[in-house]
């Protein structure tokens, strides 16, 4: 037999309101989405809970909607669906790349967008992309709905701005006006592994291919997604070429303060972060030049 979690009660809800109600009633309760992070924690009994509230039955949360101003992805939309979504690969290559690089096809068939974000594992790949995309997090709680940006949503390792009885229902990605391009890259020890470091970048270019604005975000290295303002301000008004990328590489290498840990030395982290930033910027720029996005 497989390792069995400690005992818990189980409730499958069919509405967000019922989910919030159930979570409010039982203190030690948790939302169950795809279970790909939660079930392993329960199996090792690192975590025990009294009530699991399964939101898998709320059909409306498994959604993908394109509107004029934004793309809205329901919390229960599968990472595997995101990977296969043509609109995503065409218009938001960074999001496609991040989805396609998460774990393996088996995990992606269960894992959800909402779960990947709410779990807020520093090694998760969607948090840095959503931060780079300047996404809005739509949250439902007791009788109210609120919308937060990434800086409020991600508070630390495995820690978000969600209260215990709140449910993340969707993320909204503003539609990039005009000439926008993006890329995501990660470094992991082996295929399917969590990122040691990842980078998501979204560039807005003018007609002459100068960088109007950008959001470049480092994942995994710090407890929360790290928006690299020094990189983005250095890019502003410029064309991306080898010389500029060299400067950027130095900015990242000298600009982040990291410590060695079990997974990698500080030196390697600085190296890999600066390498990924320059590569991701080059890739995004190349896409724009090729008119791909």
């Amino acid at each position: 037999m497989g390792s069995t979690p400690g005992k818990f009660d189980y409730l499958k809800v069919s509405s967000i309101r019922d989910a919030v109600k159930a979570l409010s009633e039982v203190e030690n309760s948790k939302v169950l989405a795809g279970g790909q992070s939660l079930i392993p924690l329960l199996k090792t009994r690192i975590m025990t809970i009294d009530l699991l509230v399964d939101i898998g039955g709320i059909a409306a949360l498994d959604s993908f909607r394109e509107d004029n101003g934004f793309i809205e992805i329901g919390a229960s939309y599968k990472v595997g669906s995101l990977e296969e979504n043509r609109s995503v690969s065409k218009y938001i290559p960074a999001l496609h790349e991040a989805a396609a690089g998460i774990a393996d096809p088996l995990v992606r068939n269960m894992g959800t967008v909402g779960g990947n974000l709410s779990h807020a594992d520093p090694g998760n790949d969607l948090p840095p992309v959503m931060t780079a995309l300047d996404a809005e997090f739509v949250i439902s709680g007791n009788g109210n709905q609120r919308v937060e940006k990434s800086d409020k949503f991600f508070q630390g390792a495995f820690s978000t701005g969600l209260s215990h009885n709140e449910v993340l229902t969707a993320v909204r990605i503003p539609r990039n006006g005009g000439n926008a391009t993006s890329a995501f890259m990660k470094q992991a020890k082996s295929s399917g592994d969590f990122s040691l470091a990842s980078v998501a970048t979204v560039l807005h270019l003018d007609d002459d291919m100068n960088c109007l604005s950008s959001r470049t975000v480092l994942g995994s290295i710090f407890p929360r997604p790290y928006l690299m303002k020094s990189v983005d301000s250095h890019l502003q008004g410029k064309k991306i070429n080898t010389g500029l990328l060299k400067e950027i590489n130095n900015i990242v290498k000298n600009g982040i303060s990291v410590e060695s840990d079990f997974f990698a030395s500080a030196e390697y982290k600085r190296y890999i972060a600066s390498y990924l930033v320059t590569e991701a910027l080059a890739l995004a720029y190349k896409r724009a030049e090729a008119g791909l996005t």
Binding site: G2, Y10, G35, Q36, I39, G80, L106, V107, N109, M110
Partner: peptide, 9 residues
């Protein structure tokens, strides 16, 4: 769709 049954309830 293929999934890991040790990680599904």
């Amino acid at each position: 769709k293929p999934v890991k049954s040790c990680t599904v309830l």
